[in-house]
Design a protein around this nucleic acid. Structure first.
Lengths: 191, 191
DNA sequence: CATTAATGCAAGTATTCACTTGCATATAAT
DNA sequence: ATTATATGCAAGTGAATACTTGCATTAATG
């Protein structure tokens, strides 16, 4: 390759698709942003739809259980912070993919639309055994550790999303600490 | 009016715009769904952009402070549940508007893009005095009641969003109860 | 040097789509 | 009955856009 056109097209497409969705982005626009002739796009990717799905799958990062479960201490507050830290790291890497997911038209790209939902469920599943273990150690006051895993994940997601929409994701969110403290105090059995 | 074309167009547009965004929906498609001639759309709304913004502003529901603060008991768990209930009611009325907000292209409809963010901030502001009052009564263990208001709102939003994406919003979310219990225990001063 | 692969350029095609115009028609109001 | 209003229908316009074809050019490779 002369100038690595393929990667430049993918990168430009990621930016544009995440900002404007599929239909609002023209191949011409992508070509300009990538510094590439429009025809090159069709030579490499065939058609726009292929480019779109390829962008999604090549930039998407999946959660790695080790990032979440690597340093468990069974001190809930610390562990939740570790979870939150792993989650945020993943979320930050995936912001553009998250935006693509929210913009995608379900009837046209069903697989892509379901991915984000699936990934969040995956994260819940990764941390679920931890909550079960807490329960079996008698540390939880709730009867449903599985639900707590979902709740904590969704809470993280919602909060991260708000940070993203408010453009405050780049700042290290000190609030995350407080969030984990509140949640930890809320679930432990303090007798 | 013969058949109330205006409202039928608005209603059809809301469905389509919320499912597919702006660019992916054609005026022809809207006309068919509304059972109306395409030209009628242009006669009433002038151009597509006007229709889009008019749909947004005519279906949007703003939070009413009274819904949140009407029945305060200063029993945190009960109050948080009342907040959650008011939030959910509003969220359910606004699901299509929420979808529109997530799909909107910021550079083309900035006002609309900022509305959702603003509404969530509004809700935080509505319940913030409650948390401040809790603090002054010595019930809070946190030093930042304002942040707790934001956190609780974002958590509700994130959780509701997940319910929506998973198609489980119509079921009465029993999980919301647990969520409020956890949060209430997490913030109160138990000495 | 010769070959091959990647890319650019010019021009074009077919389609979709927002939006317009002119005229006919049906209904409601006066 | 007449006027005004709302709507439908036929036809069309101009622009944007995805995608194609044929040829030239450049650069890397053998």
């Amino acid at each position: 390759m002369l100038q690595n056109s393929r990667e430049r097209i993918l990168s430009a497409s990621l930016d544009l698709f995440s900002e404007k969705g599929y239909k609002s982005v023209s191949t011409n626009e992508i070509a300009e942003k990538a510094g590439v002739n429009e025809i090159t796009i069709f030579r490499i990717f065939g058609k726009k739809k292929n480019l779109y799905t390829e962008v999604f799958y090549s930039f998407r990062m999946k959660p790695d259980p080790q990032d979440f479960l690597g340093n468990i201490t069974y001190i809930p507050e610390d562990d939740l912070r570790a979870f939150a830290s792993a989650f945020l790291k993943l979320f930050i890497c995936n912001t553009k993919i998250v935006n693509m997911s929210f913009r995608v038209v379900q009837s046209e790209f069903r697989e892509i639309a379901d991915e984000l939902k699936q990934q969040i469920m995956d994260i819940s599943s990764i941390i679920k055994p931890y909550f079960i273990e807490l329960k079996s150690r008698g540390l939880l006051c709730s009867d449903d550790p599985g639900f707590l895993a979902v709740l904590f994940t969704d809470m993280l997601f919602g909060y991260s999303l708000q940070l993203l929409k408010n453009g405050k994701l780049d700042i290290l969110p000190s609030g995350i600490k407080e969030l984990c403290s509140v949640f930890a105090r809320g679930i432990i059995n303090n007798r």
